[in-house]
Amino acid sequence: MESRPLRYFVAVAEELNFTRAAERLGISAPPLSRAIRALEAELGAVLFERTTHSVALTPAGTVLLEQARIALDALDAAGHRARRAVEPKLVLAVKADSGGGLLEGILAGYAADPAAVPIGVRLCGWGEQASLVRRGEADAALVHEPFDHTGLDAETVAVEPCVAALPVGHPLAAREAVAVAELGLPFSAPVSAAELHRFQVGIVERHGIRDLSQILALVELGELVTLLPVSVGERYPRPGVAYVPVPDAPPAVLRIVWPRESRSRAVAALVRAAAGRRD
């Protein structure tokens, strides 16, 4: 099986529309349809249920989509890693302001390890870290739970409580602690880490958030109440934001992740340095 038909299939499966998938791929719809039918013939399985008004994945298509993404990520990663092997250097992916103040210590600990090689830090956006590792564009990443663990190993770097970020004029801002249920957020206690993650992703998408400073600015303006790791409040005090402990919120768990198949001594040294920062 070649990669091009798989890329065509993934585009159609994600768009569930042949015309949009063809535009995304830069080809016309008829050859795309022919390629999908040829793939179905090769596999001996129908991948899409097609009507004049809709396209839906069959059970076989659902399985292939999961496996095709893994296969294509692995193929892309092989190319990226081969190109980067010309000049050995480790790349650590980190979202700005998400390292809990530990990044500098991790890098210092890594540099002292005999297996260390030169390292670069790649700053990235929300939710990009794990996919950069899977694609071979980074050797490791610091990422908060929850995230897609497919193809990755992980070690815990830090576990810390969450605080509510409130505008200073908020009725709860002067409290010593608040409960999740008091914050008026779209979930009730006990809230799971997955629910909190979906809420935070929704904030990012609705407001076009690119970094932490934008979130804190929205809090100051009274546009937003959210939960953040306690280290954010310690490292980013703002006159218009009150950080209040939320004892029943799920903790923020920071992990270092790397490719499951990695046998790199340098990556192992970086993992040791990161895991060694845990209290």
Score class of each variant (00 low, 15 high):
residue 1 M to L: 12
residue 4 R to S: 11
residue 4 R to W: 13
residue 6 L to D: 10
residue 6 L to F: 08
residue 7 R to N: 04
residue 16 L to M: 05
residue 20 R to M: 02
residue 20 R to S: 06
residue 23 E to P: 01
residue 30 P to M: 04
residue 45 A to D: 13
residue 47 L to F: 06
residue 59 P to R: 00
residue 60 A to F: 10
residue 67 Q to M: 01
residue 69 R to G: 00
residue 70 I to E: 13
residue 72 L to H: 01
residue 74 A to I: 00
residue 77 A to L: 04
residue 80 H to L: 10
residue 82 A to G: 03
residue 84 R to C: 05
residue 85 A to V: 04
residue 98 S to N: 10
residue 105 G to C: 04
residue 106 I to A: 00
residue 117 V to A: 12
residue 118 P to D: 12
residue 126 W to S: 02
residue 127 G to P: 00
residue 128 E to W: 11
residue 130 A to G: 04
residue 135 R to M: 03
residue 137 E to Q: 15
residue 137 E to A: 09
residue 151 G to W: 08
residue 159 V to I: 15
residue 165 A to M: 08
residue 166 L to Q: 10
residue 175 R to L: 07
residue 177 A to S: 15
residue 178 V to I: 12
residue 178 V to A: 14
residue 186 P to V: 01
residue 192 S to Y: 13
residue 194 A to K: 12
residue 194 A to N: 09
residue 197 H to Y: 14
residue 201 V to L: 10
residue 207 H to R: 14
residue 208 G to F: 04
residue 213 S to H: 11
residue 217 A to S: 12
residue 217 A to N: 09
residue 232 V to H: 11
residue 236 Y to H: 03
residue 241 V to R: 06
residue 242 A to Q: 05
residue 246 V to L: 01
residue 255 R to Y: 10
residue 260 R to T: 00
residue 260 R to V: 09
residue 262 S to G: 10
residue 271 V to L: 13
residue 272 R to F: 07
